[in-house]
Amino acid sequence: MSVLSVRGLTKTFGGIKAVSDVSFDLEKAEFLALIGPNGAGKTTCFNMLNGYLRPDAGSVKLDGTELVGIRPRKVWRMGVGRTFQITETFASMTVRENVQMALISHHRQTLDITHRARALHVAEADALLARVGMAADADRATSELAYGDLKRLELAVALAHRPKVLLMDEPTAGMAPSERIALMALTGDIIKAEGVSVLFTEHDMDVVFTHAHRILVLNRGRLIAEGTGAEIRANAEVQAVYLGGGSVFHGEAGGAHG
């Protein structure tokens, strides 16, 4: 059984179908890319998968359990994590404290005022920071971090919730090429080691074709192609959608944005 099963997902805004009858599966430990031009419906699709938006029609099942109609916080507790295009961390806290806050929430200790937060889950937080290559930065102020390090911290925070599925919305946006390579390689290692299933959107086609096990292509809310990198490169409809940026399908950087 697929970890995440999506069937007939549909969402309309003011008579415009942002997402129309989208169906796909995400397998265990799969690195699945969702790409498409601007306005293709990628973010709307993401927002329905974790309960931020309720679809007009369709089904989203996690390990066979229906998620449609469940509040985002409960969906998160059931095992659907998310990172965002713009990092969401606490700048006033240290790197370790950011991860500790996520762990306190994961362990449902948010309302426990009998302990000092800084004393909770220190070893677990440090282990997660080591997992993303930030052990040496644990005591640094988050406000001092470079953007690439913020992205790695956000990944550690997401992993604190032990997700079955991780939704990554444009994880390499704003990063230098070397940082993009490092972050996606790290994510790939985590997928292999821990069996997390990842669905990600991405602008950089080099990142997509280098790292994704499989690729989904949206255009005007409709799923127009699904397959391996080689199959997507050869798809005539996908090439037409990316007309003017088609060079990305032949190994060149840049070009396609969505």
Rank of each mutant, 00 (worst) to 15 (best):
T87E: 14
T87R: 12
E88D: 06
E88W: 02
T89F: 01
F90I: 05
F90D: 02
F90W: 00
A91Y: 11
A91H: 14
S92A: 13
S92P: 08
S92E: 13
S92G: 14
S92K: 13
M93G: 05
V95S: 10
R96A: 13
E97N: 09
N98T: 02
N98F: 01
V99P: 11
V99F: 10
V99Y: 10
V99K: 09
Q100W: 03
L103W: 08
L103M: 03
I104C: 08
S105E: 00
H106S: 15
H106D: 05
H107N: 13
H107C: 13
R108G: 02
Q109H: 12
Q109F: 01
T110F: 04
T110A: 15
L111N: 11
D112Q: 13
D112M: 09
T114V: 04
R116A: 05
A117M: 09
R118F: 14
A119W: 07
L120H: 06
L120S: 05
L120M: 10
H121V: 02
H121Y: 14
H121D: 01
V122S: 15
A123F: 12
A125Q: 00
D126E: 12
D126G: 00
D126V: 02
D126M: 11
A127G: 15
A127Q: 15
L128P: 11
L128W: 08
L129T: 00
L129G: 12
L129M: 05
R131T: 03
V132N: 10
V132K: 15
G133N: 10
G133L: 04
G133R: 12
A135W: 03
A135I: 03
A136L: 09
A138K: 06
A138P: 02
D139H: 11
D139I: 01
D139G: 13
A141F: 01
A141Y: 06
A141K: 13
E144R: 15
A146H: 02
Y147A: 06
Y147F: 03
G148F: 08
D149W: 01
K151W: 00
R152Y: 00
L153A: 12
L153W: 05
E154D: 09
L155A: 08
L155N: 07
A156N: 04
